[in-house]
Amino acid sequence: MILSEQTGLANVKVMFDTFHALYRNEVPSDYVYRMADKLHHVHISDNDRLPPGEGRCDFDAVLKALKDINYDGYLSM
Rank of each mutant, 00 (worst) to 15 (best):
S45V: 02
N47Y: 10
R24Y: 09
D37V: 09
H20Y: 15
G8Q: 11
M35K: 06
V62K: 04
V27M: 05
D46E: 01
L3G: 12
S76H: 10
K13W: 12
M35C: 11
N47S: 11
N47H: 13
D68H: 10
D72A: 15
D17L: 01
T7N: 05
A65M: 04
L22E: 00
F19M: 01
I44F: 03
N11S: 10
G53T: 08
G55A: 02
A10S: 15
D48S: 14
I69T: 09
D58I: 02
E54L: 10
E5F: 08
R24Q: 13
R24L: 13
N25W: 06
E54A: 08
I44C: 04
E5N: 11
E26Q: 13
M15N: 08
Q6I: 14
G73I: 06
P52R: 09
H40P: 06
A10M: 10
F59L: 00
L75T: 07
H20T: 12
L66V: 03
A36C: 12
M15F: 10
L3E: 14
V27D: 06
H41Q: 09
Y31N: 05
E5S: 06
A21E: 04
H40E: 11
I69R: 13
A21H: 05
H41M: 06
H20L: 12
K38D: 09
S76I: 12
H20R: 13
R34C: 04
T7Q: 05
L3N: 15
R24A: 15
S76Y: 04
K13G: 11
V62I: 01
P28K: 02
F59P: 00
S29A: 07
V62W: 01
L9M: 13
D72F: 10
A10W: 09
H43E: 02
H43Y: 06
H20I: 07
L66F: 03
M15T: 08
D60E: 13
R34M: 07
S4D: 04
M77I: 13
V32I: 02
E54M: 06
Y33D: 10
V12P: 14
T18H: 02
A21I: 05
E5A: 09
N70I: 08
M77D: 10
T7E: 00
Q6A: 15
L3I: 14
V42G: 05
S29H: 05
D46K: 04
L22F: 00
V27Y: 05
M1L: 13
P28D: 00
C57Q: 01
V27R: 07
I69M: 11
K38T: 08
K64L: 14
L63E: 04
V62F: 01
R24P: 07
D37P: 08
F16C: 11
A36Y: 10
D48N: 15
F59C: 01
N11M: 07
Q6W: 14
L75W: 07
T7D: 01
